[in-house]
Design a protein around this nucleic acid. Structure first.
Lengths: 172, 172
DNA sequence: GATAATTGTTATGGACTATACCAAATATCG
DNA sequence: CGATATTTGGTATAGTCCATAACAATTATC
């Protein structure tokens, strides 16, 4: 009850009352971001959304999400691993990894093979098509996505940024 | 069918067969991250999750999420604005902003006041309690959260990181 | 004054995340 | 050996975000 309606409107005589109609498109002034500009987490999330958005655009012809791309990459670099191992290193919970693999497998990008050593686990491997798609994706990411980031930041800054982010991800 | 089960297990004779039992805790080697370490988007998301996690820890006594904190901050810096204005500058869709405000208002941190200029819109304002909570939150964020980031990166790097992230968020 | 646009809102669906639980297979240990 | 515990892939489920359509009340436009 500390806020009265009178105080409310007293603060803001701008919309239809005191608006400066000098020019035709003289709209409301931009909002003051205040301490928000200094909040690292805020810029971090905004930047992450933009980067993911651009990733999707660049790799759209292959219909791969960042998460799917990371799975294919990991499979390529780590043959013979099972679902839990791959999921864990990507920070994906095993239950949630099932549907992801179902999607990739249904598109014939990878396969689950029952291990003979441990008949509980599924060895994951890229299919031939998976390798092809991954190769094309890598090229798109390098020539379109990361190239654009390099253009915006400059190579040196891009590396510095990556190092700091990795440090945060690892040690924070 | 390009992948045979024979090839699958041939790649990985490690689990129970060829594991080097030299030491007691000699487990499977860590997975090869490969080109994933160079993917900015990957480190970006991992870092963002860590930072948000720490934010929640630091401001836990006040029970504020990063999004709620950003709303309170914006309200403090921009009195007299309505829901759409606040939501838009935060990248929140108006329908999703309703529940957010309901939560904040039910905790008596802010209020919706019908504008007399435009009786459709709700002017948003912090309550007295909202101002108090925001002040405490700011202090916690500064002394615990951002301080920890400063400690990890160093003040100069922290600023450089923030600048690059803001640039990506704005121009990418 | 009729029509269009805006504001807050509801309903709803999709994507992502997190937890509990289960059967099959394996490991552990008395 | 056999009983018990652990691991693996999987299901079910709930919660959080994010996005779109639609609606009533109000205001703007012409």
């Amino acid at each position: 009850m500390t806020v009265s309606k009178a105080t409310a409107d007293a603060v803001k005589p701008s919309r239809a009352s005191g608006k400066a109609p000098v020019d035709g498109a003289a709209e409301n002034p931009a909002l003051q971001m205040g301490e928000l500009s200094e909040l690292l987490g805020y810029s971090l999330k905004r930047a992450q959304l933009k980067v993911f958005e651009d990733f999707l655009r660049c790799v759209a012809p292959l219909q791969l999400t960042p998460a799917q791309f990371s799975v294919l990459l990991l499979l390529d670099n780590n043959p013979g691993r099972n679902q839990t191992e791959i999921a864990n290193t990507l920070g994906i919970l095993r239950p949630n990894f099932v549907a992801m693999l179902d999607a990739l497998e249904s598109r014939d990008l990878c396969t689950r093979v029952r291990s003979t050593n441990d008949r509980r686990s599924h060895i994951l491997m890229l299919t031939e098509k998976g390798r092809t798609v991954l190769a094309r994706a890598k090229k798109l990411v390098a020539t379109k996505h990361e190239a654009r980031l390099n253009e915006l930041l400059g190579p040196a800054n891009r590396v510095a940024l990556l190092d700091m982010l990795s440090k945060i991800a690892a040690e924070f």
